[in-house]
């Protein structure tokens, strides 16, 4: 997730102060992790350097926090290109969990317990997301669903692994 592109996209709707940008970003995308103030300004200065934004004016009172930024044509092109560039699919293995399962099998412990515990934890997280989804607005629902689907994918891996434990046990033993 590129914060620079996100800020550029927000600027496309009109020039804004840096503080404004942080507020809008947090509102829309920052549920999990609000932006640090410094991060906004370092990102903006990088964009400024690359000619994607320009300072469009300083309000009375001075100070960097009162600067207004506007997007350049290059910036608009850049946002457009970013939007149509697919995200690199993450080939992701929960290596810690895999390590745990293998270690459990190697040490003769019940690997199913590892999986069951993990499932319970996952479901707990999913339950919380579901509860939040139930009370939230559409944006909340969409974001929660995204997380839910990811967690579900993990759970499916857990189920498949559970079904293959015997096979894995033999391999580990052999």
């Amino acid at each position: 997730m590129s914060i620079g592109h996100a800020l550029l996209g927000l600027l496309e709707t009109g020039p804004r102060h840096g503080y404004d940008l942080k507020r809008v970003y947090d509102e829309r995308f920052g549920q999990d992790r609000p932006l640090a103030y410094g991060q906004v300004y370092s990102t903006l200065s990088r964009l400024l350097r690359n000619g994607l934004v320009v300072e469009s004016g300083i309000e009375a009172g001075g100070g960097p926090e009162r600067k207004r930024y506007a997007i350049t044509d290059a910036g608009v092109t850049d946002v457009g290109a970013w939007l149509v560039t697919p995200e690199n699919p993450q080939i992701y293995l929960n290596s810690a969990l895999y390590t745990k399962v293998v270690l459990a099998l190697m040490s003769g412990r019940d690997a199913e317990v590892v999986l069951d515990t993990q499932r319970a934890a996952h479901l707990k997280a999913m339950r919380e997301l579901t509860a939040r989804k139930r009370d939230g607005d559409l944006a909340d629902q969409l974001i929660c669903d995204h997380a839910l689907f990811h967690l579900e994918a993990d759970l499916r891996w857990l189920e498949l692994t559970a079904a293959r434990l015997n096979e894995l046990r033999e391999q580990v033993a052999g």
């Binding site: 199913e112 069951d116 515990t117 319970a120 996952h122 999913m126 339950r127 839910l148 967690l151 499916r156």
Partner: peptide, 25 residues
């Protein structure tokens, strides 16, 4: 068998090979 549906529950029980597995976190 869908976790997203199960997430609406208060509590889950897993059945595997005809046995129930209860896990308390």
């Amino acid at each position: 068998h869908e976790a997203r549906v199960a997430a609406y529950s208060d509590r889950e029980v897993v059945v595997r090979d005809g046995r129930t597995r209860h896990v308390e976190l």
